[in-house]
Write a protein that binds this DNA or RNA. Structure first.
Length: 415
RNA sequence: GGAGGGAUGCCCGAGUGGCUAAAGGGGGCGGACUGUAAAUCCGCUGGUGUACGCCUACGUUGGUUCGAAUCCAACUCCCUCCA
């Protein structure tokens, strides 16, 4: 049982999967503030729920007086992490990386009060040092510490080698650069802990080795469990795709809904991981029986959304959900909205077309099937005829509410 | 370098000349039941069109045939074994 507050709470909340040296890390954390970092690769212009456990970990550190460091992989993104991947990642262009970096940083800012003071969360970019490396120097200074034999033995790499897809030299170097990051952060900011998902274990351990050899410092690694839902699905994937943290990618209402629709069995676990309510409160809510658990889900949704998008937006989403689901209101201001050319409605547009415009169907045929199946509603009235024509006359408060199934709603406005 | 095997729809996977828009499963979407849950049951699941249809699709290209996912040739990629 760890003694430091951070590790105790992290363990109690379910953040810890593996640690390289729990006792020593515990001792270090009791002795004083520890700098710990997590890397985020800019593979898209927003992070998604899959990275949330890492972000929450950084917040948890901060709350306990340690210094969280968020590293964005502006440099490593040029290579792509091959760990546990079946195929090589598509290489990204410099412009894509730059765009993604801005998006990822914005996501991190949503959660972390960044600053430069010794106790404030720090944001760094490994392009700052990786871009400057010279190949020969790197080989001599860093390469000499890596054993190919050992690198080949990592699970994350082995599967790639043993199975079909090969592993290019480019990708093989990812691990070395990530290790080098640890060393740089240790030198520059005194970081002594690297955290990450359990799939990062191999990379983290390599980094610890490198820091010991190059800097002569003892540093630590801590991984979080791979999160799945109770029914085994990978956390954070929904029908629509990833659950994005950026409101540009996923409306706040939908983000709230994601948490609201979590399986019963996951509520307690998620409350502890993705909200900052006291553990006892999480346990109390998770213990609610039957339909009562829905109250816990609402708390989860609002709390988790508040951390991501702010309290006000979260409350608004909760209210929109209440009006939509509990009162059956036709329009609720905070529902996601989209626009269609005003001319469409002025001239009259078939309902199926509108469902396509709203993104509820990928093709006219799919929209027709939705209507045939009885799952399409306009202003809460089931659409019976696929050819039904919508016009300006269908606007209510300047918008038409489209619903696909019980749960997906959107307001369509002419523009 | 040599010898075999393989490439099918979002994924897995059946299919060896017409009955194949292509079995079955998964996933997804919708419906029922419920609690905006899970489990279960039902329907749908290439595009276009109201519809007979038309278009696109079984690694790529070309060929045989009235007709090809299925036969032939070349090419590309992958796997296994030998050296």
């Amino acid at each position: 049982m760890p003694k430091s507050e951070f590790l105790r709470e992290a363990e109690a909340r379910g953040f810890i999967f593996q640690c390289t040296d729990m006792e020593a890390l515990d001792a270090a954390m009791q002795a004083g503030p520890v700098g710990g970092y997590i890397g985020f690769d800019p593979t898209a212009d927003s992070l998604h729920v899959g990275s949330l456990i890492q972000i929450m970990m950084l917040r948890l550190m901060h709350r306990h007086g340690h210094r969280p460091v968020a590293l964005v992989g502006g440099g490593t993104a040029k290579i792509g992490d091959p760990s546990f991947r079946e195929e090589a990642r598509q290489l990204m262009t410099a412009e894509t990386i730059a765009t993604n970096l801005r998006g990822v940083e914005a996501c991190l800012r949503q959660f972390l009060p960044l600053g430069t003071g010794p106790a404030e969360p720090l944001l760094t970019n490994n392009a700052d040092w990786l871009d400057k490396l010279s190949y020969i120097d790197l080989l001599r200074d860093v390469g000499i510490h890596f054993s190919i034999n050992r690198m080949l033995s990592f699970d994350s790499v082995r599967s790639r080698l043993e199975r079909e897809q090969g592993l290019t030299f480019l990708e093989f170097n990812y691990s070395i650069l990530q290790s080098y990051d640890f060393r740089e952060l240790n030198l520059r900011h005194g970081v002594t802990l690297q955290m990450g998902g359990s799939d990062q274990w191999g990379n983290i351990v390599s980094g610890i080795d490198l820091v010991r050899r190059m800097n002569g410092a003892q540093v630590f690694g801590l991984t979080t469990p791979l999160l799945t839902t109770s029914s085994g699905a990978k956390m954070g994937k929904t029908a629509q795709g990833a659950v994005w943290l950026s409101a540009k990618r996923l409306p706040v209402f939908d983000y709230w809904q994601f948490w609201r629709n979590v399986e019963d069995a996951d509520v307690g676990r998620f409350l502890k991981l993705f909200t900052e309510l006291p553990i006892e409160e999480c346990d109390r809510l998770a213990a609610l029986e039957g339909a009562g658990i829905n109250e816990a889900k609402k708390v989860l949704a609002t709390e988790a959304t508040a951390l991501c998008h702010g309290r006000a937006a979260a409350e608004e989403a909760a209210e929109a959900a209440r009006r939509t689901f509990e009162e059956g209101a036709v329009t609720a201001a905070a529902l996601p909205t989209t626009t269609v050319p005003a001319a469409l409605l002025a001239e009259g547009v078939p309902a199926f077309r509108l469902f396509v415009e709203a993104g509820f169907a990928a093709s006219n045929g799919e929209a027709r099937r939705l209507i045939r199946g009885g799952g399409a509603r306009v202003n809460d009235v089931v659409v019976k005829d696929e050819a039904q024509v919508m016009t300006d006359a269908d606007l209510i408060d300047g918008a038409i509410k489209l619903s696909s199934g019980r749960k997906r709603h959107i307001l369509v406005q002419p523009a």
